[in-house]
Design a protein around this nucleic acid. Structure first.
Length: 794
RNA sequence: GCCCGAGUGGCGGAAUGGCAGACGCGACGGACUCAAAAUCCGUUGUCCGAAAGGGCGUGUGGGUUCGAGUCCCACCUCGGGCACCA
């Protein structure tokens, strides 16, 4: 609340009312409210009311810290889009502002500010549309956002505001990238492993404490071999791998940015899997810690389960089946069902298919593979479809019983998960069950379910529960009679290991993070390539590597369906910038710069740290300052370990597996390397709801401007034509945005703030009704009237 | 199919296990006004009743309790996430 209860004594009461010619002169009107609000905002600035002192460094004020508990309140920072804020954006901001003010009034030192996530596709697309350089439009948009946010009376410490596009900010984004580039994951360091400097890996190889792949000594390897070995360990690395190529955007995008139906999260263009040489981040090294440390966080179960789902850990075993083309490896979560295996299935793209297929089956298999290849992923993933497949004519040997089993090819097995091959247990897996029924394959039972006949021809589905095993023993592995799946798995895994047929194994759905983009408006990679093509990080004193000036910032985009087009980075066109001569410590040599830029997410992976120490030119954040604001606490909210981090983080649920996963990953790397005291960036997460608004479509299914729609007798009309109403997230695309400027103009910011808070609980989505806003305005008028005479102003 | 979350007036919603529907919108009636807007006052869950008053009411069916919107069990509906993941 920004209604002053004790007006500054030296200032006269306002004397303006625009509520109408004959309305009382001192009524609380929109214009009076704005005047009061502006005056207080100026005073807060002058008095530096909301500046939060640090324990040390340029923003230090130790006297003000003494004896006060600290709290760090953070909003997810916005993209400064060209259309400005609408009333949906500040919902969370108003909530955090009220909370911050409350904490300040109860004696806390409150860290609370706001920055701008200004790199990335939206800013660039807006610039392309308007033909202006993104730096110009971004700066204009940021100023506009600042103006709009200030008008809302948010109690930010303005000194701490940052924009990710500022070279003094992205200098450190580049520095952190180089930290990651110059690190490797040592799984043997500590109980769960940790990142360590790459120099320590080299030292291990040089000293012989770590053996090379083929056992030769490090000094016997050629320089190229050593490079390859080291590159294979870096946490940021270039690799040729299947990536998501989006011709419509002209760039590759991360898995997390591809929707379930195989289109780009942004722009909704088709995305194609292609092998390309791109920058990756080894987030998979952190998969287990990203799962287990969720237990330390005060987040909702919904978000935690979305992250767990995305990481997708499965515990099971790798099993090798002998075949004419050599061993076929499969991953299974149910090694205990090996005795029920009656066939194997390979993905159509599996590399062994050619070698396995018998001459008489070649034509059929080739046909099937061709068919599968022409299908979009989306079609292949429709699980209501019949399970097609063809036999290769080849056989493999089941290691537990020596049985010869047919090898099939079917597109319900995906190359991108596990090994791209499965062992099929039709009695214990519904997909295998359906496939066996359809293709007349045997379904022998290996468990005796309590409520079923042992004859599987009477079964309607596979059985997946706990039940005593039958037909499941050989000379050295005896599962018969055991009733526990967990126990049977354990015995089987041990048997596989002892007999060299496999071993316990874990797989993840999570893939390494595709980190490069072929766009202009992003952080340039602080990387140069030597004449042999080896990447080198730039030394600290050459940072920031400033994004080069050019008029030619438009990305090269393609026909969205042109799968075979190739990405072209805008930076590639700038010969003057890409070809350089540098001294990286071994004399001046020619190099070529990396021409990719980092993804939108890079800047938001660490901004909460820069708020703490925004002017530090020596480090991205001072360790003492970080420990003060974000350090771990002895005990967390439920008596468990408290990993440190932001005390309250408020934002939308849409970042559940994007920003929140990436930021946790970067934070953990920086923690491992000793730069941070906190294990996690965000201790408590609160997801605010969305503000929904009515959107209207005409008979061509095109949205019409919602403000121009009129209601008559329960029906809706635009320009005299009937339109249909639906509810959706407020925004430009549904043409239903309401700007806070208009509401502030008519009623004042306090009315808007009260209305947004009175609409319902902060975590619920709620429909915006401009018509209802007047209720809170009347409330404030009533409040005002109780203290100020409307006629006299006393 | 699996995992979350939610069901209360015409609408948004409020209620540490203790008077259900606060507050707001809308609607209806009134004041002010030549009139309208703005503002103010009153009524407004539903049924019976002229009124006083009474019956019924928090998705459905059970249960715990002196007492349930709230706790437990089963179900229904809606919203969100994941999904041929081996």
């Amino acid at each position: 609340m920004t209604v002053p209860t004790d007006r500054p004594a030296h200032e006269p009461a306002p004397a303006v009312s625009t509520g109408g010619d004959d309305s009382p002169k001192f009524r609380y009107t929109g214009s009076l409210a704005q005047e009061i609000e502006a005056r207080w905002q100026d005073r807060w600035d002058a008095d530096r009311t909301f500046e939060a002192p640090n324990p040390s460094g340029p923003l230090a004020d130790p006297d003000k810290i003494a004896g006060r508990p600290k709290i760090y309140v953070l909003d997810m920072f916005p993209y400064p889009s060209g259309t400005g804020l609408h009333v949906g954006h500040p919902l969370g901001f108003i909530g955090t502002d009220i909370f911050s003010r409350y904490k300040r009034m109860t004696g806390h030192n409150v860290m609370y500010t706001m920055g701008f996530d200004a790199f990335g596709l939206p800013a660039e697309q807006y610039a392309v549309q308007t033909g202006q350089h993104p730096a110009i439009t971004t700066n204009a948009n940021v100023s506009n956002y600042r103006r709009q946010l200030r008008r809302l009376g948010l109690s930010h410490d303005a000194r701490r505001s940052v924009s990710t596009t500022d070279p003094s900010y992205y200098r450190w984004t580049q520095w952190i990238f180089l930290q990651i580039f110059n690190s490797w994951y040592d799984p043997d360091a500590g109980p769960e492993g940790r990142a360590r400097p790459i120099s320590e890996l080299i030292e291990q190889y040089e000293s012989g404490r770590r053996p090379t792949a083929d056992g030769r000594s490090w000094s016997d390897l050629s320089p190229a071999e050593r490079d390859t070995t080291i590159e294979g360990h870096r946490l940021a690395y270039v690799s040729e791998a299947p990536v998501n190529w989006c011709p419509g955007l002209g760039t590759v995008v991360a898995n997390e940015e591809v929707t379930a139906d195989g289109r780009s999260d942004r722009g909704n263009f088709p995305v194609f899997k292609r092998n390309m040489r791109q920058w990756m981040m080894r987030i998979t090294a952190y998969a287990d810690r990203l799962i287990s440390d969720l237990d330390l966080l005060d987040w909702t179960d919904a978000i935690k389960s979305m992250q767990r789902n995305w990481i997708g850990r499965s515990d099971g075993a790798t099993v090798h089946f002998d075949s004419s083309a050599g061993p076929i490896s499969v991953f299974t979560t149910r090694p205990d069902t090996l005795f029920g295996v009656t066939f194997m299935v390979l993905a159509p793209e599996h590399p062994l298919v050619d070698a396995l297929t018998t001459p008489d089956r070649r034509k059929v298999v080739a046909q099937y593979r061709h068919q599968a290849a022409s299908k979009k992923d989306i079609d292949r993933q429709d699980d209501t479809r019949e399970k097609t497949g063809v036999s290769t004519g080849a056989y493999a040997v089941n290691p537990v019983n020596g049985e010869s089993i047919p090898v099939w090819v079917a597109d319900y097995v995906l190359m991108g998960y596990g090994t791209g091959a499965i062992m099929a247990v039709p009695c214990g897996d519904q997909r295998d069950f359906e496939f066996a029924r359809l293709h007349g394959l045997a379904i022998p039972p290996i468990q005796q379910p309590p409520d079923r006949d042992v004859d599987t021809s009477t079964w309607a589905s596979a059985f997946t529960g706990n039940a005593p095993y039958i037909n499941s023993s050989n000379g050295s592995l005896r599962l018969d009679g055991i009733a526990s799946v967990a126990e049977a798995k354990r015995l089987t895994n041990a048997w596989l290991e002892e007999n060299g047929h496999g071993h316990a194994a874990v797989t993840y759905k999570l893939r390494d993070w595709l980190f490069s983009r072929q766009r202009y408006w992003g952080e340039p990679f602080p990387i140069v390539y030597d004449i042999d093509g080896n990447p080198h990080g730039l030394p600290d004193d050459q940072l920031p590597l400033v994004l080069p000036e050019t008029d030619s910032f438009s990305p090269r985009t393609f026909d969205p369906d042109d799968e075979f087009s190739n990405p072209e980075s805008p930076l590639d066109r700038l010969e003057w910038w890409t070809n350089v001569e540098l001294d990286l410590g071994d004399g001046v040599k020619p190099y070529r710069r990396d021409t990719n830029v980092m993804p939108q997410w890079a800047g938001s992976c660490w901004y909460e740290l820069r708020y703490l120490d925004p002017t530090n030119e020596e480090r991205f954040v001072d360790p003492e300052v970080e420990r003060y604001w974000m350090g771990p606490q002895p005990v967390g909210h439920d008596g468990h370990e408290h990993p440190g981090g932001v005390d309250l983080y408020v934002g939308g649920v849409e970042h559940a597996v994007l920003h929140l996963l990436y930021a946790r990953f970067w934070h953990k790397v920086l923690f491992d390397l000793g730069h941070l005291s906190s294990k996690e960036p965000y201790y408590r997460l609160f997801n605010q709801g969305y503000i929904l608004a009515a959107a209207y479509k005409d008979d061509r299914e095109i949205y019409v401007e919602a403000t121009e729609v009129i209601e008559r007798d329960g029906a809706y009309f635009h320009d005299g034509q009937p339109v249909t109403r639906e509810w959706g997230k407020m925004g430009k695309s549904l043409k239903n945005a309401v700007t806070p400027d208009d509401i502030c103009q008519e009623f004042g910011a306090d009315t808007l703030r009260l209305y947004e808070m009175a609409m319902g609980p902060l975590d619920a989505s709620r429909p915006w009704e401009t018509r209802d806003v007047v209720g809170m305005y009347r409330f404030l008028q009533r409040l005002w009237r109780n203290m100020v005479d409307e006629e006299t102003g006393d």
